[in-house]
Design a protein around this nucleic acid. Structure first.
Ligand SMILES: [Zn+2]
Length: 672
DNA sequence: GCAAGGTC
């Protein structure tokens, strides 16, 4: 390659490079060492568009131990074996950078993209001869507009990205090393442990749920169970009013019914409801639906979607947007999709019922760099697994559905009154399937209720009435998908990282699969509580808020990265010095609070080997005891003596394990 | 060896 006098355009990834190249003119594609690059003339200027593959540089240290503050930037492929694929991208960019007369950072317009391009130009190009292309989407007109209005390098964004990297690195590496050091000194065993701004609050969330379950004391409540006949079909009425909290109130109510066993129809509501089509998929919604419909974990869905993207079957999947770009040629995509026999009829129906007016039901969620996920109509499914095809099918159907007509569902609700308490029956009947034809994964139809004999004020004999005692249940163990959703809701992690970070918690042995839920290991509990004791900031999502606030200050030139990094180092030093000042006995004593150590020589819980916290019990058994005591008040109103109560708790499935252990202990002790 | 963030 002897051409000089060209401008090197750096894209974040190959797919973006291609779009940029085609927006700028009529490009010619080459492959250098397996990396695609595009040459294009624009006016009298020659552009060479070459891709990165995300971050090509990362932070690294050679130092052992902690605190560790001497990081440096190095090519990623050198220090991360799993990033070896970035080597060829960096090599091709280096080669092209040598003779380039100018450099344009055309990575995604966010802090990470600004940093990706900057690091490349700084290391293998020349920042004095560089510019930034700023576009909000990768459409031809946006790209052209950006190249007609090239900006100087966006140093504020670069600095914010730079700072985000360093902060996460400092917190993550230092605290991880501190945990490993504590673990090794106490257990005389090496073990890989980790902590971080995103993973640690997530772990702590699961540990809290696990603790709630283990210390759960079911509390009784009573609902009337009333059955009536409507047109020879039996129905159980659903209570509207709150339950009885004492057995005597419930029994009194039942007596009233026995005296006068009639239900009166209060109201009959029949109305048609329009159910709008679903929004186009973003990654969280896709992960959620693939889990609901096919049982895929969020990580699996993400990997499958990435494969489909690399096969050009779908658009970029790591997006939070629920909006299809207004410039998207949906007509053309539909025509291509209809070449697949599976979708031919569906596409035909869709074009007929929309009369060709394709307006997606875009949702509110946005993404700084990418639109919602849609099928391209291109690529081939040949050689892909059954699961790939399932996911592709889901994406195509969702895409079709979002253009379709609303579904019309007839909603029927009948309200009753029985001795001053209200009940209802309800059902749905799909009147017009609309978008459900394309996306038939939601079932609206309920049991049919015949309305022909019903009218307001009608009194219907009660067929059966009894009081049913229910017990409160603890929260479920969160599934992987609910953890990803929780992270999204709390605003930690990104589309690209959440599912993977959940997997990290499993890889570390903090969590394990218990059915579809995530159980917490003793190690997970220990790590979560040690962090709470020694680095409390790290188990809260507020640390992310604090980072965001600092990064925003950098963006607004109200702070410098160096000062923020200094602040973080000071905080970390404070935490680290405190832990370093503790002797091994103190650490052992601390750990003995949370897990059972066979050589715990301190005062032990009467039930387990953990150290005493209060009432001669460890921290967990003591919570259980307090819950047992405070829940008894309600149980008493249901006629349970203290002993009967404890014995009943032992029999109930939803009673927490720590609670059962305390019950056995109390019974054995004869504390009646 | 450890994070979280990009992406093949
Ligand atoms: Zn205990």
């Amino acid at each position: 390659m002897n051409i000089k006098d060209y401008i090197l355009v750096i894209a974040e990834k190959p797919k973006s490079a291609e779009k940029i190249a085609y927006a700028l003119g009529n490009p010619k594609k080459y492959r250098i060492n397996g990396v695609p690059v595009w040459f294009v003339m624009r006016g009298t200027s020659r552009f060479v568009i070459a891709p990165a593959a995300g971050h090509l540089y990362t932070l690294h240290t050679e130092s052992k131990g902690f605190p560790v503050f001497d990081y440096k930037w190095v090519p990623k492929y050198i220090v991360e074996p799993e990033s070896i694929f970035t080597r060829k991208y960096l090599n091709v960019l280096s080669m092209l950078a040598k003779n380039a007369k100018e450099y344009i950072n055309a990575c995604d317009y966010d802090i990470e993209g600004s940093l990706i391009g900057y690091m490349i130009i700084k290391n293998i190009g020349d920042i004095k001869r560089s510019k930034r292309a700023k576009f909000s989407s990768l459409t031809a007109s946006e790209i052209v507009r950006a190249f007609n209005n090239l900006l100087p390098l966006d140093y504020n964004m670069i600095e914010a990205g730079y700072c985000r990297h360093i902060l996460d690195w400092l917190w993550g590496i230092n605290v991880s090393r501190m945990l490993m050091s504590i673990y090794r000194s106490v257990f005389n065993e090496k073990r890989i442990l980790s902590a971080g701004r995103v993973q640690s609050p997530t772990l702590s969330y699961v540990v809290n749920i696990d603790l709630q379950r283990k210390t759960h004391v079911p509390v009784p409540y009573a609902y009337p169970s009333i059955k009536i006949f409507i047109d020879n079909k039996i129905f159980k009425l659903i209570p509207i009013d709150s339950p009885f909290n004492s057995l005597s109130d419930a029994k009194e109510y039942l007596e009233n019914i026995k005296r006068d066993p009639r239900a009166t129809v209060l109201d009959i509501i029949v109305r048609d409801e329009r159910i709008e089509p679903p929004h186009p998929f973003n990654l969280p919604d896709l992960q959620s639906e693939a889990h609901r419909i096919y049982g895929f974990t969020p990580y699996k869905t993400q990997k499958l979607a990435e494969d489909l993207y690399l096969e050009a079957l779908i658009s970029y999947p790591r997006t939070n947007s629920q909006k299809l770009p207004p410039t998207l040629n949906n007509r053309e995509i539909l025509e291509k999709l209809s070449q697949n026999i599976v979708y031919r009829t569906l596409v035909k129906t869709l074009l007929a019922e929309t009369r060709g007016i394709l307006r997606p039901n875009n949702g509110p969620k946005e993404d700084p760099a990418h639109p919602a996920i849609y099928p391209t109509g291109e690529g081939t499914l040949k050689g892909l697994s059954k699961d790939h095809i399932k996911l592709y099918d889901l994406i195509v159907r969702r895409y079709l559905a979002t253009f379709a007509n609303p579904a019309v569902v007839q909603y029927v609700r009948i309200e009753f009154i029985v001795h001053g308490r209200r009940y209802y029956l309800s059902t749905n009947i799909v009147r017009s399937r609309g978008w459900l034809q394309y996306y038939p994964y939601i079932h609206f139809n309920g049991e049919e209720i015949s309305l022909k004999l019903l009218r307001k004020g009608l009194q219907i004999p009660i067929h059966e009435a009894k009081i049913v005692i229910h017990f409160t249940k603890p929260p479920h163990l969160p599934s992987k998908i609910s953890l990803v959703k929780w992270m999204e809701e709390k605003g930690i992690g990104t589309e690209a990282t959440r599912a993977e970070i959940v997997e990290t918690l499993f890889k570390r042995g903090y969590l394990y699969m218990r059915g579809r839920g995530s159980g917490v290991s003793e190690l997970g509990i220990l790590i979560s509580f040690l962090l709470k004791d020694y680095v409390e900031e790290l188990i809260s999502v507020e640390l992310t808020r604090k980072f965001e606030e600092r990064l925003n200050m950098i963006l607004n030139m109200k702070a410098k990265c160096d000062d923020i990094v200094e602040e973080a180092k000071e905080m970390l030093l404070k935490y680290i010095n405190r832990v370093k000042s503790l002797d091994i006995q103190t650490l052992r004593a601390e750990i003995s609070k949370y897990i059972e150590m066979s050589d715990n020589n301190g005062r032990r819980c009467m039930i387990c080997k953990r150290s005493v916290y209060a009432n001669n019990l460890c921290i967990f058994h003591n919570i259980a005891l307090e819950n047992i005591r405070s829940a008894y008040e309600t149980w008493r109103k249901f006629g349970f003596s203290w002993t009967q109560y404890l014995e009943k708790l032992l029999k109930l499935k939803s009673t927490g394990s720590y609670v059962k252990e305390v019950c056995r202990h109390l019974i054995k002790q004869g504390e009646f």
